[in-house]
Every structure is written in structure tokens, then in C-alpha cells.
Design a protein around this nucleic acid. Structure first.
Lengths: 221, 221
DNA sequence: CGCCGCATTGAAATTAGTCAATACTCGTGG
DNA sequence: CCACGAGTATTGACTAATTTCAATGCGGCG
């Protein structure tokens, strides 16, 4: 994940010499409180965002309220490349969050002048597509336990720390991301705990005790 | 779907005057028979492809053989943008198929010289991301009947003809695409037929009799 | 201290999956 | 021209996984 992040943070903009730094001048900082929305499904997609601190989730709703969480965006992650003219999901802060906002028009314009920028955008899009394909496999064919195992490993990979995972989101968010109910998520986590595969420090912090077992469950397709 | 297709077919290459035509000179024609593979998951991603005639499916397998069909690619569709260095799925011909093959290196190189090409690539990637998000919603939250309804409408949209849908793939392919078993696919289709929503001309051709009912089922999120 | 939101656990209900039998289609060969 | 057989699809009966409904538990904050 980290490897494909492209646009530097506003903080890093001080370190120039790279075509990408031009981008950072386009960014303005945005802050959101927990549960605030960044944009809504159907809004005109005027901006890209990059998470600096905190966490964001993308949501889609069906008419009767069933919800799907497409992705969780953590520090460094880029939001908005999967929009044609309008946003296709809403984005909400999972916790208090800071982001950098970029005018999509300006970034896109820059992309065609500076090949490096264009390449990075395409690289991010590619990466999101890969993640989306993996998630579709998970949703279409994995069991509840396998989904949870895959999710925990994914979060661990993204968080630097190998066996200590922080889950900023609620069980409902996790369920809506994995196509499960909150109860099933809870039961799977409890089962993994009973089996000694993980330990629950508290409901938002998990220790991976037996990574091999977790990876076997996740079935690295 | 059609609107975002970008690279012209080899056939159209004769009509020049557009930056994109440079691309078509890079293409060579490939033909596949039913069930032949175009490439395998894990192969180095050297080529992009575009379907000219026929149909291709993308597949991912779990260790124990569970299969997921990510997408069906129909004439005009572009294959391969969702690969970083290696292909993340295998691609197989659903029926006898003709494609144009492009060297990825050449296309990518051209993309940074000709902004239009880069824009089109990014446009295709965006479009696939949108489709992937919709599919994740389907897989994570829709019932079997809703999945079938969504799938039929999607195929109808892609095929020009509004109420006559040709399904070149088998029930197994459809099931693996929608996260269902072959039996459930069959039962859902039978139910829709009994309810007068569709008619089955034969097992690969369907008539939409009551589009409103189908759209209500699909719940245009 | 007690409430409120979130999480866990249990028991019943339901959807989709599995196993199994039958039917259809199409191509081949008697 | 019809019969056969392979592959695919449909239908039925039963099973299993997950959801739903319901109750209890836990933790932080006013």
C-alpha cells in the first residue's frame, strides 16, 4: 500500500526537487470530526483527498438502508480516483481526521503536463483495482472466518506494526465492509481468540498471536 | 461502458487524424478458442488486450479450488489495466474470441507523450473502479434474486439491445461472478420466469418482459 | 452512579449451499 | 433419420452457514 502512495503530504512539500511537489502546492488542509461526511454519493467530484491522520470510510447505500463499506482510507491513502463525474460513494470520517484536499481539475491538468503525476495517478488507480479484485474474491467466495482473517492481515500490513492491529472502526463498519453482520464479526473474532490465533486487547486493538494460522485461514489466493 | 472505451479497434485504424490511432499500429490480432487462456494469474503483465469479438472472463482461484469470476469482457472492452507488475487474475475465452494485443510498455510510453492516451487509460481505470465498487455492493449486500436482476440489467445495458440479452457464459460462470452456486442461479432465473419478469428463449438467451420489476429488484443503489 | 452506545453471546429463523436425480441440447455416429 | 452420450441446466430434498431477534455485558462519560 505504502509503496504506491504518490502525492506527498503537505508536510513534505518542503522537500522539493520532484515534479510531484508542484501538486502539494495545490493542496489545502481539511479536518473532520468523527462521523462527519467529506462528500456524498452523487456529489459532483470536484476534489481528490489524501488522508493525513485519522481514518475515512467509503459507503454506498441501497434504497432500504443496507450499507456497504467499500474501503477504509488510512494516513497516506488517496481518495477520489474512482469517480467519473460524480462521486460513486459517500466518504465519512471514522475518527477525527485530517486530510489534504486537491482540486481535481488542477491535478488532472497537471497530470498531462508532468508525466510523473499522470503515472502516479494511474499507479494509484491500478493499485485500487487490485485491492478491489481481492475484495470481490473475498466477498464472493470466502467464509466469515476467512474474511475476518484476511481483513486483520490486511490491516496489519497497512499499519507497519506486524502483530499489533488497531481497528479504528466499529464492528458495524467491519461487517459492512466484509459483507457480514455485526454479530458474525463478533463471533468470528471471539472464535479466533478462543483458538489462540489472536488476542483482544480491547475491542479496537488486536494482537496477532499466530500469524501462520491467520494466513492459512485467509488463504492467500 | 461503450462511452469510456478508448483504444480504437485495428479495423478503425484506417481512420487517422486522432492521437489514439498511433496506438492501433501497436496492436496485433490474437484469436482464442472457447476455454483457452489468454494469460494466467501471476504471469508478468506484458500486454494489454482489447476484445474485438467473443467474450473473455477473468478468474481468480483459492487454494481449494473455489473460483471467482471478476468480470466478463465483451467486444470493445479493455483488459489488463488492473495489473501492477503481474496479472492478478487469469483470463479465459468464454467463446471463440478475437482480441487485439498491445505491448504494455509501448502503450504506457505513448501515454506520457500523448496526454490523450494517458487520459483514456485513466478513464478506463476509473470506469473499471466504478464497476468494481458496484459489484462489491452487490456481492456484499444483495440477495440472490437481486444479484441476478442486476446482472441481467447490466448485460442488457452492455449489449445495445434493450430487452434481449445474450449470455455467452455458463451458469457456473454466472454463479462464480455473482458469488452464488449454479443451482441458485438456475433457481433465481426460473423464479423470474415464473413471475413473468423474464422469458428464457434458451439457456443462453433471455428476454426482459418486465424491466420495471427487474430494476426494482436490482435496487439501483 | 447510572446511562448510552457498542460489543458479545445465545437461540431461532432463513437463505443459500450441498447432494442427488432428472431433463434438456447438441453433435456424432450407427 | 434417429439414437446415444457428453456436457449443461433444472428441480427437489435436505443441510449448513449466516442472519435475525433478543438478552446481557462492558466501558466511558456526564
Amino acid at each position: 500500500m505504502q509503496s504506491t502512495l504518490s502525492l506527498q503530504t503537505a508536510r513534505n512539500a518542503a522537500a522539493p526537487r520532484d515534479a510531484l511537489t508542484a501538486l502539494d502546492r495545490l493542496g489545502t488542509v481539511v479536518t473532520l470530526h468523527r462521523e462527519e461526511s467529506l462528500f456524498y454519493e452523487g456529489d459532483v467530484a470536484e476534489y481528490y483527498f489524501k488522508v493525513v491522520t485519522g481514518a475515512v470510510r467509503s459507503c454506498k447505500l441501497l434504497a432500504d438502508g443496507r450499507r456497504h463499506v467499500g474501503d477504509f482510507y488510512l494516513p497516506g491513502d488517496f481518495i477520489g480516483l474512482d469517480a467519473e463525474s460524480d462521486y460513486i460513494f459517500s466518504a465519512e470520517a471514522v475518527t477525527d481526521t485530517t486530510l489534504v484536499r486537491y482540486s481535481r481539475r488542477s491535478v488532472d491538468a497537471l497530470a498531462w503536463e508532468e508525466p510523473k503525476v499522470g503515472q502516479r495517478l494511474l499507479g494509484i488507480a491500478r493499485h485500487r483495482l487490485c485491492a478491489a479484485r481481492a475484495q470481490m474474491m473475498l466477498l464472493s467466495r470466502k467464509t466469515a472466518d476467512e474474511r475476518i482473517a484476511s481483513f486483520l492481515l490486511g490491516m496489519a500490513d497497512r499499519s507497519g506494526d506486524n502483530d499489533h492491529v488497531t481497528l479504528p472502526m466499529t464492528r458495524t463498519d467491519i461487517g459492512d465492509h466484509l459483507g457480514l453482520t455485526i454479530e458474525t464479526v463478533s463471533r468470528s473474532l471471539s472464535q479466533l481468540r478462543k483458538d489462540g490465533v489472536i488476542a483482544l486487547v480491547n475491542s479496537h486493538e488486536i494482537l496477532i498471536r499466530d500469524r501462520d494460522a491467520l494466513e492459512e485461514l485467509a488463504e492467500a489466493a
